[in-house]
């Protein structure tokens, strides 16, 4: 979140710098000031880790050993020996596909249900308490139920993503719809917009900043859930990869995979935030 706005500001400053060269130095200084501290912290962290885990009998490998141990999977992300013996790229792709499918379904259903709840007093009274209870159920608790229903890992994992990410989308959409100013409704009424035009031309754009807040929370939750779900269902996927590495005591591979999981989660969040920024023309907080 903070890094995104930071980069945005730096880029903006740079653009101005092209016209007024004096600003360039300040912009550069700003960039350095923002990038150096996290690098320093990271270096210190790696150093402490290295020192702590150097001594014999340490539970975790030091960073230097992680790199040498896991060198194979770091430099060969694309290998494919069939079955589940694939490079990290394929595992991550499989996980991302599940997230994409489950999350897309959640967006469509969530926005529609959220609109219903936000728009109709009756739907709100009836559905809101149920949603409030359902949303507290931990993602993995849905897995056995969905396995029982679908009798297959793939749709079950997608369902878990769906059911995990839909609640923040519904709730935020409903709040956004509820907050549509009466003025906009009056404008739509005078123009006699029909229900579909009103939805597409007034409701969605007006509620977009709220909807995107929900989408960001949702995408984060689905990434959390997929890793856990894949540990249980097996097959190709980053969660399974981590579980498999644990079973074969490849701790270094786990650490590499965790770095990937973290970075991708961050990128997903930024993607949705960036999209929100684009769609709402800057009114959603990025």
């Amino acid at each position: 979140m903070a890094l995104g706005t930071t980069l945005g500001r730096v880029v903006a400053a740079k653009r101005e710098g092209a016209r007024a060269p004096l600003v360039t130095r300040a912009a550069l200084k700003g960039l350095v000031l923002r990038i150096v501290p996290p690098l320093v912290v990271l270096a210190v962290f790696l150093l402490v880790w290295e020192i702590l885990c150097q001594r014999p009998g340490a539970g975790l490998p030091p960073p230097s050993r992680v790199v040498t141990d896991a060198w194979d999977i770091i430099v060969h992300p694309f290998y494919d020996n069939g079955g589940t013996d694939k490079g990290l790229f394929w595992h991550i792709t499989a996980s991302l596909q599940r997230v994409a499918l489950g999350f897309t379904l959640a967006v469509v259903a969530g926005v529609l249900l959220g609109t219903l709840v936000g728009q109709s007093e009756w739907a709100m009274r009836g559905l809101d308490p149920i949603f409030q209870v359902l949303r507290t159920i931990p993602p993995l608790a849905w897995l056995p139920l969905s396995l029982a229903a679908f009798r297959d890992g793939q749709p079950s994992a997608i369902f878990v993503i769906f059911i995990t990410s839909i609640w923040p989308i519904i709730i935020n959409t409903a709040v956004g719809i509820r907050n549509i100013p009466q003025d906009y409704r009056n404008v739509a009424a005078v123009l006699r917009l029909n229900a579909f035009e009103f939805f597409a031309k007034v409701m969605l754009p007006s509620a977009a900043p709220y909807i995107f807040t929900g989408l960001r929370i949702g995408v984060g939750l689905s990434w959390l859930a997929i890793v856990a779900a894949e540990m249980l269902i097996g097959g190709v996927g980053i969660g399974f990869f981590i579980w498999d590495a644990w079973n074969s005591s490849h701790i270094s591979e786990i650490i590499v995979a965790l770095v990937y999981v973290g970075v991708i989660g961050f990128v997903l969040d930024r993607l949705v935030a960036g999209l929100g920024h684009l769609v709402t023309r800057g009114t959603a907080t990025a």
Partner: peptide, 27 residues
């Protein structure tokens, strides 16, 4: 019921903020 043959100029303008001036009129 409301309708365009009785157009309203609202006290607080009520333009849709995500549309440009032209798009507001075009809508």
């Amino acid at each position: 019921s409301p309708g365009p043959e009785r157009a309203v100029v609202f006290q607080n303008h009520s333009l849709l903020p995500w549309l440009t001036v032209r798009e507001n009129v075009a809508l």
